Simulated scan of single mutants.
Amino acid sequence: MDFLDNIPKLPVAENIENFMDWITDVLEPIFDFVQSFSEIVMEGLTDLLLLVPPLLFIVLIAAICFFASGKKFGLAAFSIVGLFYVQNQGLWDDLMSTITLVIVSSLVSVIIGVPLGILMAKSKWANTIVTPILDFMQTMPAFVYLIPAVAFFGIGMVPGVFASVIFALPPTVRFTNLGIRQVSEELVEAADSFGSTGSQKLFKVELPLAKSTIMAGINQTVMLALSMVVIASMIGAPGLGSQVLSSLQRAQVGTGFVSGLALVILAIIIDRLTQKFTK
């Protein structure tokens, strides 16, 4: 033990802080542009959602649930009751902010994740390099993602989306990779024998056959993005998560339960809808 105690402490923290400061200084114009553009997009999306009257929004969601579930009333009735509850509790604006956060972070995750998963399925080197990175992303505690988010973008919805994307990205990448690799080799060989190009084989054979697996990954990504709502509120992201955090800080059990139940309702509706669309 004396020998171990005499070993000088490695300057890991200092080096990481210096690296983050260097990255922030060098890429500051890019981060500022991304932050400004993202704020405009997300505030515009939230304002657009708020333009829809709550009653009309509830009817539209119920109709989507009704047809997505094969004209069954269960999910539609749940969405009507649940969304009426959210509106009744005065949480409608927070709900729209939360939906904006989930939509943007999920879309960014899918836009990045699906091509990256395809690359992993097609390239052995890419699979070797990206797999440990995904392992790192999935095992790192979610709170740690807030540190680079705040360093790069300050506080607000933009760093919340940044942290959510990092946290929610791996399932889409992994499931896309898995789905394409599980496509029957006989079908791929048949496509090759008919003279299909690489893009034709990808878009007409592999992706359609891997669709259900990819959609399962997207479902997991959306749910993980929603699970980051409360954590992202710690760095200023608005929405239902901020209400839960505020209730926790003030020990307001009733208010926290109301906001938490609203999150549960939203999670159930999103989860069931994405599952129905997958089928």
Rank of each mutant, 00 (worst) to 15 (best):
S164F: 08
S164P: 06
S164M: 09
V165G: 09
V165P: 13
V165W: 02
V165Q: 06
V165F: 02
I166V: 15
I166W: 04
F167L: 10
F167I: 04
F167P: 12
F167G: 13
F167H: 13
A168S: 12
L169H: 04
P170E: 01
P171L: 00
P171H: 03
P171E: 04
P171S: 11
P171F: 00
T172Q: 00
T172M: 07
V173R: 00
V173H: 00
V173L: 00
V173D: 00
V173N: 01
R174S: 07
R174K: 13
R174W: 09
R174D: 04
R174E: 07
R174Y: 03
R174G: 04
F175R: 03
F175N: 11
F175I: 01
T176Q: 07
T176F: 00
T176N: 07
N177T: 06
N177D: 15
N177A: 11
L178F: 11
L178P: 05
L178A: 15
G179S: 12
I180S: 12
I180L: 15
I180A: 07
I180N: 09
I180V: 13
R181L: 11
R181E: 15
R181K: 14
R181T: 11
Q182M: 11
V183W: 05
V183H: 03
V183L: 03
S184P: 12
S184I: 04
S184N: 13
S184G: 11
E185K: 12
E185N: 14
E185A: 14
E185G: 15
E186D: 14
L187Y: 14
L187H: 13
L187A: 12
L187I: 14
L187M: 14
L187Q: 14
V188E: 14
V188G: 10
A190W: 06
A190S: 14
A190R: 06
A190F: 12
A190Y: 13
A190I: 08
A190T: 05
A191V: 04
A191F: 09
D192P: 08
D192A: 07
D192I: 02
D192W: 05
D192V: 02
S193I: 03
F194C: 09
F194K: 04
F194D: 09
G195D: 10
G195H: 05
G195L: 06
S196Q: 10
T197R: 07
T197F: 06
T197Y: 02
T197S: 15
G198S: 12
G198R: 07
G198H: 10
G198D: 11
G198I: 02
G198A: 07
S199C: 04
S199Y: 08
S199H: 10
S199W: 13
S199G: 09
Q200S: 08
Q200M: 04
Q200I: 02
K201F: 03
K201W: 05
K201Y: 05
K201Q: 10
L202P: 09
L202N: 11
